[in-house]
Write a protein that binds this DNA or RNA. Sequence first.
DNA 1: GATGAATGAGATTTCATTCAT
DNA 2: AATGAATGAAATCTCATTCAT
Lengths: 213, 213, 213, 213
Amino acid sequence: MRRDAAEHREQLLAAALKVFDAHGLDASVTEIARVAGVGVGTLYRNFPTKEALIDALVHQVLDATITMAREATALPDGSGLEHFLEASASYQAKHVGCLPRLWDTDLEAVTTARALIALLLTDAKKHHRIRKDLTPTDVSIVLFALRGIIETTQERAPDAWRRHLDILIAGMRPAEQDLAHRALTPSQLNAIVAGSKRPLDGVTRPRNGVRGA
Amino acid sequence: MRRDAAEHREQLLAAALKVFDAHGLDASVTEIARVAGVGVGTLYRNFPTKEALIDALVHQVLDATITMAREATALPDGSGLEHFLEASASYQAKHVGCLPRLWDTDLEAVTTARALIALLLTDAKKHHRIRKDLTPTDVSIVLFALRGIIETTQERAPDAWRRHLDILIAGMRPAEQDLAHRALTPSQLNAIVAGSKRPLDGVTRPRNGVRGA
Amino acid sequence: MRRDAAEHREQLLAAALKVFDAHGLDASVTEIARVAGVGVGTLYRNFPTKEALIDALVHQVLDATITMAREATALPDGSGLEHFLEASASYQAKHVGCLPRLWDTDLEAVTTARALIALLLTDAKKHHRIRKDLTPTDVSIVLFALRGIIETTQERAPDAWRRHLDILIAGMRPAEQDLAHRALTPSQLNAIVAGSKRPLDGVTRPRNGVRGA
Amino acid sequence: MRRDAAEHREQLLAAALKVFDAHGLDASVTEIARVAGVGVGTLYRNFPTKEALIDALVHQVLDATITMAREATALPDGSGLEHFLEASASYQAKHVGCLPRLWDTDLEAVTTARALIALLLTDAKKHHRIRKDLTPTDVSIVLFALRGIIETTQERAPDAWRRHLDILIAGMRPAEQDLAHRALTPSQLNAIVAGSKRPLDGVTRPRNGVRGA
DNA sequence: GATGAATGAGATTTCATTCAT
DNA sequence: AATGAATGAAATCTCATTCAT
């Protein structure tokens, strides 16, 4: 009956992913524990709050994203960026459950990711695969867009994002004319990640919890 | 304090939009009623459930989308599609509150919209503004993508989607090579809209309510 | 089925008193609501937290204490202090449920009460009913002592404190010799009321609560 | 890390005292085990339930009380009672953590203590140090009163009870007039100690536990 | 014997919904 | 028709207790 503690952590993350995927982030921790085959207490031993569990899921995705970006920098011919976008979306598609929180946490991980993206972009431009006027913030926004597609289509058409990415990359290829609108500055992007959803009236986002007496 | 019934409906929809925008769809109906300046009872007289209120909001967006698509068909030179995308995204950006449910309802409105989109696309191709291998389903997916951006950036950079749309349209212009991946069939798209988020195990989505004693 | 709101507040306070009396302050709010004959929601409409409910109970006692002290100042012959002690203990005996928190809140009420006690004491000394070396802080401590008795004996011997008060007052009568130990300073007493039970390690007193999703 | 079994018991009692003192009896057993430097399992090997641990603490105090009472009987001049009260309060002041349960257990220890108190009282009366109309039950109630003071003041004014005891003893000295109210009978006192806090409705006091799966 | 991970009942609190007024 | 007090299910989180290691 007793399992290895580390195993439980994985089971819980997997269960959370599955349950959040099916019910959204409002899914109850009890349900997650049930699917993981453990008691709620065990969930709370591994993750101090529900929010921490979601965070862990988000971190998984971000960490994987960083790894994939880093690996992509090793690719030749400036194709790293394109491979990264494909790999990243592919990974996101397997972690739909936590996507709503993905770009909404104050995380140094996001900063790290952005630095690597800048590298990939420079390389791509150097090899004339990507238009000169594209900025790193443009690439970040591509990830937001892909999330939108994945969240919507994942369940019935898990690969729908691939063709859209084809279109996007076609649009990112070197072109005669510059893009009409101005790119986001890095600090604007930071502000977005740093924290959205402020209160209308004084209410904070994650609803409160409970304690005994 | 007494208002006209129709006025109440509008007040409530406006309040819901504002409150959902700030707090997400988890915002309480009491808060919405407060912002609308009416009692909860009045809210429930106008909308039988919270879900119905969200639906009404979604319908507003879809109806506006259809109207905009219809107007776009009148534009010359095959530019209707591009104008429609811009107008549609612009409208979505003003209705962030309900976007999470936007493409997740079984709605004939979506079908209607798709017919108009097909028209716009045909016209655009005729004028060689858009590549031949693009399908109506591709356009629908563009809307999903824009939603992803709008949801993420709306608060701090409300116009971020515009530049991304520039890239997208560049990718949609006539090109030598066909897109690598296959397009979604209309029926796949239907399945997506028809209803996602089914229970994992028998649990239904909207929380239940309570009756008095 | 629907009652008057003000009535509910009283019902809840009465129920809380009864339930706390029987089970201690750890009694559940659900039980209190049940005894009051209302749903938990109604309890929470009247008192935002369990702590607020306890506070209201404590305030009832403190307010009554102040009133009784004020009335006692009108008594002739310097007998006000003695009457006040009797009345105060008598009232406490009917509110055992909340006594554990009675002297453990930062309350201006306590300050007010102390001012009146000082008045009563001066008058009692003037009429040679009470020894000269008694201080107002001594009187406050008498109330703490009576609480100890009431808490312990209330259930089986509700009047046990009366005889003990006889002894105490005998000890407070004018005497040849001063009391051996020094009296508490008013600021020491303030510190006691201001807040006891600090964490051993960073934990705060009232345990935490819970919120929905 | 391994210690002698008896040593563990002492460590746990000491830890419990410290933790209950700081957090009240609601403190968790995990915290106590942590402070004692052992696992919860060890705590449960030594004390079958949390309640048993509290009981052991209470017994410590009661046993010490009995010892002090016995020692006091050896004092000359009938001063034993006064010394006992001082010693007993002094000891309680060092064990605040468990005072709420002190006079609330069915304990033969209490009976033993009462016999000794009767002895001390008789001796004190014989030497004309204490008024004739004082009964053993009166002395027990003095202990309840001192508990009230100690619980309230311990943290900020650990010696506050001493001056109050001065007053009390002054009131216990031989006097012209008998006390106005009747003393508690021994059996009334027994009933108090035998067990208070019965359920209001069928609910039992100590929270229940859980078993594994 | 000791450990502490696991358990799940139960505590507090929220909120969609109803209905007396 | 409008109001908002009342309802209670359900959510999050804690902790006494057990038992595999």
